[in-house]
Amino acid sequence: MERFRMELESRSKNEEFARVVVAVFISRLDPTLEELNDVKTAVSEAVTNAEIHGYQGAEGIIQVEVEIEGRELTVKIRDKGIGISNVEEARQPMFTTDKSGERSGMGFSFMEAFMDQVTVESSPGQGTLVVMKKKIGR
């Protein structure tokens, strides 16, 4: 197994940094451009959620962990923010707590669409862990 872990400050400019670093790491699996973009999109969604929902735009640390086992990729995004009281509701397409109207509420739907498997562990005050798996090169 190959793995790496990094910690990022919760800031919007780190969304791009996170997805690009993960993309560079998984390039050793020789993914197609589409697979690479799928993973980048899913990482971007999870990191953006951690920042704007988990930490509500305030300071915090987002942990990104990536494992490669054979062709199986696992990406874990963890925050120690406010957590999600009802994970099932949060995962519904178009569900959002945003009042501005600028957020689509499609973050979890996108993670599910672009990865093979997405699990979410969260409880109020404890933060959130999103684990996403995808087989690269089928």
Partner: peptide
């Protein structure tokens, strides 16, 4: 070159 669901939110709001 890259877009995630944040882009969808922006497009939908302009559409509305």
């Amino acid at each position: 070159q890259f877009m995630d669901s944040s882009g969808i939110g922006v497009l939908l709001n302009r559409y509305k």
